[in-house]
Structures are given as structure tokens and as C-alpha cells.
Amino acid sequence: MIRIGAAPSEMRRMETYDIFFCRLQLLVVMARGYLADCPPGEFRNPAILNTARRVANDTVDWSGRVNNFRTESETKRGLKLDPTFFQKVKLLTVIAKSFTSSEPMGQFRRSALDENLESICDIIGFTGSSQATRILEIM
């Protein structure tokens, strides 16, 4: 039997912020995959839309109590988050919803997406590049 996930001493229930950051990382990978021309798929598109929707909803909730969130995240994860972070995440969710469209994004939008991704990744300390590459290999 293989074991994956938290170490025994760190096991606990998954809280809202755990899921938020997991979903945000997933959204980053989805965006990286899009920029790398990862082909959409019948089952991928709903996953992208749902992930973008859930992250957007969570971001709205967090914005109402950003100070609490910032305090908690600094304590638990060493992240320094500010309101612009949430605006960047919101922008990412809006752009991500267009990934499932067949409309071309255009050079400048792709560039804006890339810059936004870099900014978010700097804050959360996650690039998503290796995971996106693995997704492409699975294809």
C-alpha cells in the first residue's frame, strides 16, 4: 500500500484555506497548460470552469475579511498577501473561464495572462511549470 499526502504528525482535516490554495495551484497549472497549448478535452473543460468558479467565489469571501486571512496565512504558511493578490486571482479566474472557448486569446492577452501568473506564483511560491509539463506528457 502506498502512502501519499501529509505526514502522520501533520494529519488533520482540510480547512477552507487548504482547499483555496490547492484550487489556486490547480488553476495555475491549468493556465500554464493553456499557454503551452495543452489540448482541451471533454472532461477537462468542466474541471477548468468549476475550478475558476470556486476560486472566484472563495476570493470574494476572503476579500471581505482579508485582514483575518492575511494573519492566518502568515502564521500558517508564511505568505504575505494583500488585496492586490486577490484582484490578481480574480483576474486569473476571469481569464481561465475563456480557456474552454474556441476563440483565440491573442498575443497581448496571453502576455497579460503570463505576467499575472508570474505575479501570483511569486506570492504563493509555486510555478506550476513541472505539473503542466507532466499534463502535456500525459496527452
Partner: peptide
């Protein structure tokens, strides 16, 4: 599961894997 003791139980039930919470996308 989020419970440490469940890992042994899972092995006893011939489970192929144990996914310990909290886990992440990479897991």
C-alpha cells in the same frame, strides 16, 4: 482520511493506497 489510525485499518482492508489529509494537487 485525516486520522492517523486509519492507515493501519486501510492496510488491513487491502487498500492499495492511503491518501492522508491534508494533501495537495501534487499528491
Amino acid at each position: 482520511s485525516a486520522t492517523v489510525d486509519h492507515e493501519q485499518q486501510a492496510a488491513g482492508m487491502s487498500a492499495d493506497g492511503f491518501l492522508a489529509k491534508p494533501f495537495g494537487m501534487a499528491d
